[in-house]
Structure formats: structure tokens, C-alpha cells
Design a protein around this nucleic acid. Structure first.
Lengths: 233, 233
DNA sequence: GGTCGTGACCTTACTCTGTAAGATCGCGGC
DNA sequence: GCCGCGATCTTACAGAGTAAGGTCACGACC
């Protein structure tokens, strides 16, 4: 069944690695990586599971490919950015790139976790990092400091970092007073902090934080620290 | 088969959540999370797969449990640390904890990737972070700055961060001269940096870095940045 | 001591996964 | 008209998680 007795009226767009990978991203966007199975992927492109293997080596290849595709999207965007007017603007330029990457990855929440499971280095990731090094070099970094910088940034360079408390997780804000008191006994500092932070921000419930602000806070600490090292170096 | 006609001479140690989780860690240590299946886990504890379900809810629960177990190990170690002699020593104390956590996690390479897939917050993780906040509070941090600090540290707080280039991945150092030249054309800054960094360290091949040093470099940038903010704040 | 409930454990079976092997289909070149 | 060949589909299999129900040992009660 499926495409067996295909009416000749439907022209059948041919499969391709590109089309398969785009479909994979679409499926993951909708249902997470868990939903991305070869059969589901085949269905999405109007084919049978085994037909996919003429365009991708296996499922690992699909996962590698989707990562590459997404970073490629990021590269397309950041490549259009103007180079910094002054060398000293390296920090602004790097910051802008990272935040652009983050913006794209936020549309694919499943991607960061997937990235960390890839062992093969994607060419697009290499290209992205190459661009960052270029900016830092122009800003006065030694090669050595560039190298350290990439390590210091880690996944933050690509616009993500493990979010501390995921609000989508275990029931948000349904804690009873008794449960909260029990928590306060076991984790006094944590509950104290959350009580105060939540008070400052009335929208905030236990475990909710402004991801974007926190991300930028961490990013700025690192960039500022690197800038100081560069000046001293 | 299996435990069916068990001779009464063998006393049969009873299953328990604890024993199952410890076995799970052992299997993952040996063969990675991929090797951790319910059947393999049952075999390890001398039972049948379905018997495990009397002690754990399902496989997700096993994974959650192993995470909790490992962080519990970390907490046992860091809880024995003396509190800092002077408030200003918060940085040393936090640094010491993080590096202790890292040391333990380095013995379970599969764990970091697993952590990032857990949505439920482990009580042991809460306890660990609670301790960090305690140190920072004693060192003069506002609750707000503690909060930012945890976000800035991210997974680094627990002693890991995505390693940039995994040397175990795609063939280390077998690049031909032609391939290297092709790479240099596509990624000039990256290849330039690696050439120089590798030159400084003759042990280093393309893609190899001193993880521990890089980790501490990044950690120190963040801790120094936080210290400056605390003083200014 | 018999019996009976209760859980720990095992057996079987089902659905879903990735993918190997081979059949079939359709189109371009002779 | 025929052939060759690559793209596609069909079938099948091993291994995953786990639902449903059977079995068996042990402690509580009469």
C-alpha cells in the first residue's frame, strides 16, 4: 500500500538527501527526536522506510544530517553580518552571532540535546567556529586564547546551554505549602533564593527563569573575562 | 531457564531499586547507555527483564535513578569538605566542589549526555545546587546574583561541559596533506589555530585538547567574572 | 498444621524499532 | 522493442520496552 498504485496524475517529486533531512527536521520540530523514526520519516516524504536508505546511510546519518542542516541555516544568517567596524568590536560581533544562533536553535528545541550525542564533527559546525575565530583574531586574540575561548564558550558558542530548571518538567507551581516547607528544610538556600527571585518577578513561579536574560548574563561574563585576558595578554 | 531451577544452595540476594540502579551504572560504565537495556540489566542482576518492574517504574525511571545515584555520590564527597575559612574564599570552595564533581563524572563518561535528556529534576541535583548557593551566600552574594551564577555555570557547575572536539570521533590524525590543505581553504582560521596550538604541544594532534585545563580555564573565567560582579554589586 | 493472601519473580506475547535481502518498477539509451 | 540500472517497495528478522497473567515462597491467621 502507500505509493503502490500511484496515479500518473501525481508527478511524484523525487527523493533526495536534502528532502529527507528537511522532513526529519519537520518531524522533530513537531514531536521531538523520539518521534523521528525511519518509518515516520518515510511516511512524511511519501515513500517506504527502506527507500530512504538510497539517500542516507542509516539513521545516524539522518541525525548527523539534521544537525548539519540546522547549523548551515545559522551560517547562512551570520555570514550576512557585516564585519565589525573596529577591531575592538570583536565582542559585539561574537555576541551578535551567538545570539543569532540561539534564536534559530530556539525554534528547534530538540536540537541541542541531539548535538551532544553526535561524535562526528559537522562541517557546518567547523565553519561556524572558523568564523568565530576569525572575529577574535581580528580583535587581537592570540591563537592560543582563541582556542581557550572556544572551550570556555562550549555549547554557548552555538547559542545554547543546559537550562537549569525546565518549567515543562514536573508540575509547575502545584507544590502545596507542606511540600514547600519540606523542601525548605532539605534545600534551605535553594528555596530561599527562589522565594526572593520569584518575589522580584511576579510572573515567575518556582523553577521558571528568563532563559534569554540568563543566557546573555552567562555569555557576557565569559566575553568580558576573555576581553580582560586579551588586554592583559 | 535462567533462575528457574535455582539450587537452594544459592541464597538469591533479593532485588532492590538500589541494586538495580547500581547494576545500571556498571553496564553503562562498560558499554555506554546504548548497552543499557532492560534485558541486559536483568541479566546483570540475575533476574528476568520483567522482574525489574517491581523495583523501578520503567526505563525512564532507571535512567533518572542512575543520574540521582551518581550525583548522590558527588554529594557524599563534597559534603565532607570543610566550609571555607573566610567568606572571601567562596571562589576556592566552589571551584573545589566543581572539580570534585568533574572527577567523579569523568569516571562515567556516558553520564553528562544522559543528564541533558532528563527533564525531572533529581533531588540530589537540588541538594548539590543548594550547597553551591550556600557557599555563595556566605561569600556575600545576593540571592539574585546566586541565581544568575547558577545559570552562568550551567552544566559546568556539575563538572562537565560539551567537549568541543572528541578525539574518539572520526579518525584522529590520519588526515592527508591534501585533505589538510582542502580544510585550510574552507576553514582558514580554524586550521591556523590548530596548527599553532598543536605546535606548542607536541602531544597534541588535530582535535586533541587538554580537557582538564580547558575546563578549568572556562570555569575560572566565570568565577572571576562573578567575583567582580559581587564586589561591584 | 493447614490455608490463604500477598507480593516477588517469571513466561509469554505484542508492538515498534532499525535495517538486510531481494523483488519490482520505470525511465533513458540502443 | 528491448535492456540495463538505479530508485523504490516488500518481506522478514533481531532486538527494544513493556502489558498481562501465571507461579511460587513466605508470613498471618484459624
Amino acid at each position: 500500500m502507500g505509493a503502490r498504485n500511484r496515479p500518473s496524475s501525481e508527478p511524484r517529486v523525487p527523493l533526495s538527501r536534502e528532502r529527507v533531512l528537511r522532513a526529519a527536521v519537520a518531524i522533530a520540530d513537531e514531536g521531538g527526536v523520539r518521534a523521528l523514526t525511519m518509518r515516520r520519516l518515510a511516511e512524511q516524504v511519501g515513500a517506504e522506510a527502506m527507500s530512504l536508505y538510497h539517500h542516507v546511510a542509516n539513521k545516524e546519518d539522518v541525525l548527523d544530517g539534521t544537525v548539519d542542516l540546522l547549523i548551515g541555516e545559522i551560517n547562512e544568517v551570520v555570514d550576512r553580518f557585516d564585519p565589525p567596524a573596529e577591531p575592538a568590536d570583536w565582542k559585539k560581533a561574537v555576541r551578535r552571532r551567538v545570539l543569532a544562533a540561539r534564536e534559530i536553535l530556539l525554534r528547534h528545541r530538540w536540537a541541542p540535546a541531539l548535538f551532544e550525542t553526535r561524535s562526528a564533527v559537522s562541517p557546518q559546525v567547523l565553519r561556524y567556529h572558523d568564523g568565530l575565530i576569525g572575529l577574535m583574531r581580528a580583535g587581537g586574540f592570540s591563537h592560543d586564547l582563541c582556542h581557550h575561548a572556544l572551550h570556555a564558550l562550549g555549547s554557548r558558542a552555538l547559542g545554547f546551554a543546559q537550562e537549569l530548571f525546565d518549567p515543562s518538567g514536573a508540575g509547575g507551581g502545584e507544590e502545596s505549602v507542606a511540600e514547600l516547607e519540606a523542601m525548605a528544610e532539605r534545600f534551605p538556600h535553594l528555596v530561599g533564593m527562589l522565594a526572593e527571585v520569584a518575589h522580584d518577578d511576579p510572573d515567575s513561579t518556582l523553577g521558571w527563569c528568563d532563559d534569554q536574560a540568563e543566557f546573555e548574563f552567562g555569555l557576557d561574563i565569559i566575553l568580558d573575562g576573555l576581553d580582560r585576558l586579551r588586554e592583559a595578554g
